[in-house]
Design a protein around this nucleic acid. Sequence first.
DNA 1: TAATTATTTTAGATTCGCCTAAAATATTAT
DNA 2: ATAATATTTTAGGCGAATCTAAAATAATTA
Lengths: 224, 224
Amino acid sequence: MIANLSITEENYIKAIYHLQQTDGNVTTNEVAEMLHTKAASVTDMLKKLNAKNIVNYAKYQGFTLSDDGRKIALSIVRKHRLWEYFLVEKLQFGWDEVHEVAEELEHISSLKLVEKLDAFLEYPKFDPHGDPIPDVNGKMVYQPQINLTDLPPSELAEVTAVGSQSTELLELLKHKKIAIGTKIIIKKKFLFDNSIEIKLQNQAAFTISQQLAQALFVKKTPNE
Amino acid sequence: MIANLSITEENYIKAIYHLQQTDGNVTTNEVAEMLHTKAASVTDMLKKLNAKNIVNYAKYQGFTLSDDGRKIALSIVRKHRLWEYFLVEKLQFGWDEVHEVAEELEHISSLKLVEKLDAFLEYPKFDPHGDPIPDVNGKMVYQPQINLTDLPPSELAEVTAVGSQSTELLELLKHKKIAIGTKIIIKKKFLFDNSIEIKLQNQAAFTISQQLAQALFVKKTPNE
DNA sequence: TAATTATTTTAGATTCGCCTAAAATATTAT
DNA sequence: ATAATATTTTAGGCGAATCTAAAATAATTA
């Protein structure tokens, strides 16, 4: 029953999916802000998606994706992350410049294309930002990761994901030479401004802001 | 000056480009038929494209692409054929099933993507149907080719292109095991129905219809 | 609790691409 | 050359997605 959806509808579904990851219940204004549109437009679209049983919607009460809606969202996320992986691994894009291109590619409809692309890429489990790629059934690997601010000092860890895809963040990470897979260790935490002194492999220690630390997720790695 | 164009506008530009390859001057009805739409819709779009200086249009007189329009068309054709090459060579699609997918992929806008894809594919000169791929400046290799119906008997030739991408044609070619690069020789021409007896390498001779012969283009190859 | 403020929905317009039906123009045949 | 036919354009309307402004509802504060 996966109806033919317009690109616009798909973008709404994806936005709702991402918002409910953190929020649970999603509101009209949140979606409007994420899609750079107005609340009235969101209401219009919600009525349409509700009629198609893609969202559970009750006037003024917020909304969530239905089971069908979630399946659709996962298939879009799958396509987005596979294309990002392709762009970085095969076409040599920088990991900070693939998001926008993948926003277009994720709407290519051919199912066969997605499966063949997945095979060509040898079934990657994570995209270049460290986010898990859903498989054809929507299942994805759960990666136990913690925020860098919760990592105890002196414990070796590896960057697994970043908190957003904003150009500003990615530009800063590039400058600091921090990427997915970078080994990191906390030297000292400063209580005054919650800044953190960190050290990367083969580099002198340096200090990063609380905001940056909060945007980094790591997994602890066994000290070899 | 390459304006932001909608997918619809791009499809009109591409249709006009292909029609004027054979026709020179293009008519409203031809475009309507190619795009499965109505003449009135074509007229609407022509006014818009004319206002953007993409076509040279005078009421009731037919029209052609402007220089700008031709550049845009070539960049779309370039994307289409590069993606087709990618799908066949890298993702193992059959050459008869890539056209529709490429119809979607050709509208992805990133210029950087096209150039990186071209490099990844090692700058192919022809797509899987034998059509030349324009380079970044719109230049493409001219391949001297003739229609199979114009090939004299007993001369060895090689299939270089097919006359259309219709599923029906491609299905038939698959069944007959004829593809781009296939070596072919004419054994006999039958004047009654213009059917042609041909022979491929390592195969018994068989007869093909006039319609099929007209859909095949070949280049003569030196008899080794 | 009642009033104020914030959020969401409705009402009505706009743009884009498409349509049908009718009018205008061009082409062809007598 | 004129009549019949074919093609193209105009006129007017429709659905999708958007917007602004106003009304309805919910949440917050006094």
